[in-house]
Each structure stands twice: as structure tokens, then as C-alpha cells.
């Protein structure tokens, strides 16, 4: 009971990270059908920006530093997303999918190795330590930090959901997904909506990066590679293009992976996600909450 409860908390924390990143994957795929391979690296950059802010503010009280790191890193990665979209992807929107995919690989390599060249290949230790204090829930030890991470992530997702539902932006996003040309003809600034999508997606990935960096305590330039792949798996699991699907998929993957690793041994942890990905594509390719579409010719 005790151990399972703690595993459950681990799953919720990891699931939060996956969900936040999966949202950006899903949004970008939903709007321009691009598998943005560089998305996991945006998460990594978020962690490094957070590291920079926390190092600079080492004298400040813990919560002030964390708050500043969170805000600054999320905004910075949001802007990074904007820049990447503007420079790398926008000029290619009319090109073939293959060209876009290869570009995304290039962006991923540049981000990873840019950080590696600037800060070195070794792991960096975050200059703060989260308090270990917590409480006992049904016999399981739960730290306040875990609760805060889950609450922050869920809060961000609720905000996003409200934004997409309540504003014109959400409608415009769906319209572009269906037919970009017609949407542009209706006077909707397609490029601005796509840019905003990149901003929001990268913002969420960056915030996940800071949270994960602080939570695990160690960061490295390759930390986004596997996590990005898993977040993609999460978005396919939930149904790519569907925002509730991405959130559900993220948490589900968190659970499957945590309990699967507990059962089979930690060295197989990273294989899980990919086996799930291949199974989902075989058995239910639209994902749990995705829609089927007859959109051809």
C-alpha cells in the first residue's frame, strides 16, 4: 500500500511533465501537421534557463527564486518557439512534409548541441534543493513539492483549456487545421495564429522543463530527447490533435511507465513508451480521444 501510493505520486509527477509537453506536440501537429522533433529540446532549454535564473538569484528566498525561474524560463522558451517557427518552419509551410520533418530534425540538433557547446556536455546540478517535507496520504509519503508540481501543471492545463474554448483563437486554430487557405481568405491572420500556437506549446514545454529540472535536481543537454519522444507517444495515445487527449495520454503514460518499470526493472523503463506507441498505432491509431476523418482528395 505504502509503496504503491508513492509510485502513484511518481506517476502523477512524471505524467504532468509528459502532459505539458504532449500538449505542444499535439497543438502544432493539429494546426500544421508537423511532427516537431525539436519540441523535447525546448523542454531542455526551459530547464537550463531555470538553472540560469536560480544561479543568478542564489541569495533570494527559495520561493521567490523558483517563481522567477518558472516565469522567466516559460516566457523565454515561448519566445524560442516563436523564433524557431519564424526562422525555420514558416518559410517552408508550402513545402512537402518530408522537407518540414527534416528541418525539425535539424532544429533539434542545433538546440541540443548549441546548449552543449555553450555549457558543456556534463550534467549540471540545480542550485536549489526542494524541501523534503510533506504529509502522509493513505499511508504514502507525499512531498509538498510533488503536490505543487501536480497543481501547477493541472492549473496550466485548465488555463489553456479555458483559453482555447473561450477565445476566438481556439476557433481560428481549428479552422486552420481544417483548411488554411480558406481560413486565410476569411481574413484570419493564419501566420499569427500558428505563431501563437508555437508560443503556447513552447511555454508549456519550458515550464515542464523548469519543474522537472528542479524536481530531479540534474539537467543535461540531451534530457529532452527521450522525454520528447515519450511526450509524442502520449499525444498519439490520447489522440493527436486533441488537447484533452494529450493531457490524458501524458498521465496514462506516466502510470504505465512507472508501474511497468516497477514490475520489470528500471532498465526497461524507456522501452515501455515505444512499445505502447507501436501497439496503439496498430490497435487504435486514432488514440483514445482522437477523431477519425475521411478527408482525402
Amino acid at each position: 500500500m505504502n509503496v504503491w501510493g508513492e509510485q502513484l505520486m511518481n506517476a502523477l509527477v512524471i505524467g504532468s511533465f509528459y502532459s505539458l509537453i504532449a500538449l505542444g506536440y499535439s497543438m502544432v501537429y493539429g494546426i500544421i501537421q508537423l511532427l516537431n522533433f525539436a519540441h523535447g529540446d525546448v523542454y531542455m532549454v526551459g530547464a537550463f534557463v531555470g538553472y540560469g535564473v536560480l544561479s543568478a538569484m542564489s541569495g533570494a528566498p527559495l520561493f521567490v527564486g523558483l517563481g522567477a525561474a518558472f516565469l522567466f524560463a516559460s516566457l523565454a522558451t515561448g519566445l524560442l518557439g516563436l523564433g524557431v517557427e519564424r526562422i525555420a518552419y514558416r518559410p517552408l509551410l508550402q513545402s512537402s512534409r518530408l522537407v518540414m520533418l527534416i528541418t525539425a530534425i535539424g532544429v533539434s540538433l542545433v538546440l541540443e548541441n548549441g546548449v552543449m557547446l555553450a555549457l558543456g556536455p556534463s550534467f549540471r546540478v540545480m542550485p536549489v534543493e526542494l524541501p523534503r517535507s510533506g504529509l502522509s496520504l493513505f499511508g504514502a509519503d507525499v512531498t509538498y513539492a510533488q503536490l505543487a508540481i501536480i497543481a501547477t501543471s493541472v492549473g496550466l492545463m485548465l488555463l489553456l483549456d479555458a483559453f482555447v474554448r473561450r477565445t476566438l483563437y481556439g476557433k481560428a486554430m481549428r479552422a486552420i487545421a481544417v483548411n488554411p487557405t480558406a481560413t486565410a481568405l476569411m481574413g484570419i491572420p493564419v501566420h499569427r495564429v500558428i505563431a501563437l500556437t508555437f508560443f503556447i506549446g513552447s511555454f508549456l514545454a519550458g515550464s515542464a522543463g523548469v519543474l522537472a529540472g528542479v524536481y530531479y535536481g540534474k539537467i543535461n543537454f540531451m534530457m529532452g530527447f527521450i522525454v520528447g519522444l515519450k511526450a509524442f507517444t502520449a499525444s498519439v495515445l490520447g489522440g493527436i490533435g486533441s488537447l484533452p487527449g494529450a493531457m490524458l495520454g501524458g498521465y496514462l503514460l506516466g502510470f504505465l511507465e512507472t508501474f511497468g518499470a516497477a514490475a520489470l526493472g528500471g532498465e526497461w523503463k524507456d522501452v515501455f513508451a515505444f512499445v505502447i506507441l507501436i501497439l496503439i498505432l496498430t490497435l487504435k491509431p486514432t488514440g483514445l480521444l482522437g477523431r477519425t476523418g475521411t478527408e482525402r482528395v
Binding site: 501537421q33 511532427l35 519522444l229 509524442f232 507501436i278 498505432l281
Partner: peptide, 25 residues
């Protein structure tokens, strides 16, 4: 087979995952 039955760009990420599975295995 599972990846190509769908959108062919899924193949990119499925193969990426497969590469990792093989290496980790």
C-alpha cells in the same frame, strides 16, 4: 506495417522509437 497504414509521417517517430528500443535492448 502499423506506422505506414496511417499517416506516413508517423513512420518517422515510430522508427526513432524502434531505434531506441533496439539500442536499449
Amino acid at each position: 506495417a502499423p506506422a505506414l497504414r496511417l499517416r506516413s509521417d508517423y513512420l518517422a517517430i515510430v522508427t526513432l522509437g524502434f531505434g531506441e528500443i533496439i539500442r536499449i535492448t
